[in-house]
Amino acid sequence: MKILNCPLNGPRPIQEFHYGGEFHPPLDPAELNDADWGQEVHHRHGEPGVKREWWYHTASGTWFIAERDNLKDHVIQTYLYTPECGND
């Protein structure tokens, strides 16, 4: 069973967490045309590699971002969301 390191609560077994999907930098919907917006909300690609993912520590109610290489199932780092996370 994997260990995930919650930035606030420290390393915990994976069953304490809820997966929140891939992290997308928040975009301004007004700036996208219909097709691009559709891509933004519906398109999920399964290409393996390093992904940014939302994870939630249920007991403490903590959302954070994990950078995970889903090819190796290796978590590179975890951190709390800040608005800077949107800047790739």
């Binding site: 077994p13 069953q15 304490e16 007991a59």
Partner: peptide
């Protein structure tokens, strides 16, 4: 519980899951 309380500090709360229930 999958948390190692033998290393836990006293008087400090641990948010974890106990018998399937989220707990402090």
């Amino acid at each position: 519980c999958g948390y190692d309380f033998s290393t836990a500090a006293l008087d400090r709360v641990v948010y974890t899951r106990l018998a399937g229930v989220d707990a402090a």
